[in-house]
Amino acid sequence: MNTAELKQMANHLRMTAVDMVYKGKDGHPGPALSIADIVATLFFDEMRIDPANPDWEDRDRFILSKGHACPIYYAALSEKGYFGDKIEDFKLRALGSKFQGHPVMNKTKGVDMTSGSLGNGISIAGGMALAGKYRKKDYNVFVIAGDGELQEGVCWEGINSAAGHKLDNLIVFVDKNGWQSGGSVEETIGANNIKERFEAFQWDAQEIDGHDIDAIKAAIAKAKAAKGKPSVIVCDCVKGKGLSFMENDNAWHKGVPTDEQYQQAVKELGGAK
């Protein structure tokens, strides 16, 4: 897909995510919308995956470490064809649904790792990347983590280990939107100097506009060219990106649009999914 098509796809995924939260009457729309441009670029331009063979051992791997943002993940998997026919109602978070409030690998086709307990994604991805090295595979492992999530100590154990093993097949995106469930990252932990911290752990580090498709594509190419060390792409994002009533409003960390807000979303995101 070209840049315009990927941008259109990102908004389509946003609409699908809002639709599933609206119909399911529960979910985390703000964190989902902030990473839509990254997810669209990965799933529809970058990653080597096969929906007809989701367990293909040479596929690229993806972990949504900030698992509560899963509506955008489910939207991408659906659009990519993992579930066959178009899903009209995902039954998000419903009892027995395969689309739970956090991704579950043994329940949902295309999910490489269960996530939701924040902080574990980078360490698990490091294990996947290390396994690829041992088995002489050329797949890459991609992770999306949140800036608030990086307060978990296990993140930094994984970050340190990945550098020590020179895992240049590991690429982490950090959704730096400045918010976490209880408030701003700055108020919670202080300076949000993510790029500098990763550099101190000997990672190849970039910081970009997380809503600029061309910048995302260029950053991935640069990360893949960095040999002998893992890569992080710190993405300056806006929580709730794409909806005027949701952008940068942490009240939408978790929430359900009203009927009127849903119709506004349809209008702002270019129509129903």
Rank of each mutant, 00 (worst) to 15 (best):
N2S: 10
T3R: 14
T3P: 05
T3Y: 07
E5Y: 09
M9W: 00
L13I: 06
M15P: 11
M15I: 06
A17L: 04
M20Q: 13
V21F: 05
Y22C: 08
G27R: 01
G27P: 08
H28Y: 13
G30F: 07
L33M: 13
I35G: 06
D37Y: 03
I38M: 14
V39C: 00
A40I: 06
A40P: 12
L42F: 11
F43G: 02
D45F: 00
E46Q: 15
M47F: 04
M47E: 01
R48F: 11
D50V: 11
P51L: 08
A52M: 09
P54M: 08
P54L: 07
R59D: 07
R59N: 03
D60R: 12
R61W: 03
I63Q: 04
L64K: 00
L64Q: 01
K66I: 14
H68M: 02
P71Q: 07
I72E: 01
Y73V: 08
L77Q: 01
S78E: 15
Y82R: 05
Y82D: 07
F83C: 07
G84I: 09
D85V: 00
I87T: 11
I87A: 02
E88N: 10
F90W: 12
K91A: 11
L92W: 03
L92Y: 12
A94M: 05
L95N: 06
F99M: 01
H102N: 08
H102L: 09
V104T: 13
V104P: 00
K107R: 14
T108R: 02
T108F: 02
V111W: 01
D112F: 02
G116P: 05
S117L: 08
G119V: 15
S123D: 05
A129E: 04
L130N: 09
Y134K: 11
R135C: 03
K136Q: 15
K137V: 05
D138K: 14
D138Y: 13
V141S: 08
I144W: 02
A145V: 13
A145F: 06
A145Q: 13
G148M: 12
L150C: 07
Q151E: 15
E152C: 10
G153A: 12
E157R: 05
G158N: 04
I159V: 15
S161W: 08
H165E: 11
D168W: 09
D168I: 12
L170Q: 08
V172P: 02
V172K: 06
V172T: 14
F173P: 02
F173H: 06
S184H: 00
V185Y: 01
N192H: 10
R197S: 07
F201W: 10
W203H: 07
A205D: 07
G210D: 10
K217F: 00
A218F: 03
I220T: 02
G228Y: 14
I233C: 05
V234M: 01
D236S: 13
C237Q: 15
C237M: 15
K241P: 06
L243W: 03
S244A: 11
F245Y: 14
E247C: 13
D249L: 09
D249W: 03
A251S: 14
W252K: 00
H253M: 07
G255P: 05
G255C: 06
V256M: 04
P257N: 11
D259P: 09
Q261W: 09
Y262T: 06
Q263V: 03
Q264E: 15
G271F: 13
A272S: 11
A272P: 02
K273F: 09
